[in-house]
């Protein structure tokens, strides 16, 4: 049957989990839809958007959406947060759910690459740019972690001392 038995779902648990991951506003959402009306995810037809994700969690869904990549398409534009009449901060709910997905490694390969780059180079978006830079009259390396070993070590220390380290991404 294509029916959800809501009483059998543990709504409290799902809500507590999302709050622990940074989505405390979820309890205030009244499902008015203002966020979804301006959300790029909704406009382009992703299976999830801020409002829908919130509803799923409010009704006790948790594991079901773990493989859904929609949350990873959120551009963090925060337009939802600006228009929400209940101070839910819907983008924070998207990110909170992402954290659950991330810590379960339900992420794409491109996302994995970014974490590796962040650790190895200090830059999540990395490409060899020496030629381009010199072409416009700049030194081959920018004055960032790319040309400062001590600084890179600092970034690595912060990453090594974080829950991210346990995921074996870098």
């Amino acid at each position: 049957m294509n029916v959800i038995n809501v009483t059998s779902k543990n709504r409290q648990e799902a809500i507590e989990k999302i709050i622990a991951l940074g989505g405390e506003g979820i309890v205030r959402c009244i499902q008015c839809g203002a966020c979804a009306s301006v959300c790029p995810l909704a406009r382009t037809g992703f299976t999830l958007n801020c409002k829908k994700l919130i509803r799923l969690i409010q009704t006790g869904h948790w594991e079901e959406m773990i493989e859904d990549p929609s949350t990873w398409a959120c551009v963090a534009c925060n337009r939802c947060t600006e228009v929400c009449p209940r101070d839910v901060k819907p983008s924070e709910i998207i990110f909170a759910y992402r954290r659950f997905q991330a810590m379960e490694l339900a992420i794409s390969t491109s996302a994995t690459m970014s974490q590796m780059n962040l650790y190895m180079k200090g830059h999540a978006v990395f490409s060899e740019a020496a030629q381009l830079r010199q072409k416009v009259g700049l030194p081959p390396l920018p004055p960032t972690t790319l040309s400062d070993e001590k600084a890179l070590k600092e970034v690595q220390t912060l990453l090594e001392n974080s829950p991210m380290a346990e995921l074996g991404l870098f």
Partner: peptide, 16 residues
């Protein structure tokens, strides 16, 4: 009756 008279009701708050 307003629905029957052809006024369209849409549930959802516009954001912009």
């Amino acid at each position: 009756a307003a629905i029957e008279k052809g006024i369209t009701f849409l549930r959802g708050k516009p954001g912009g």
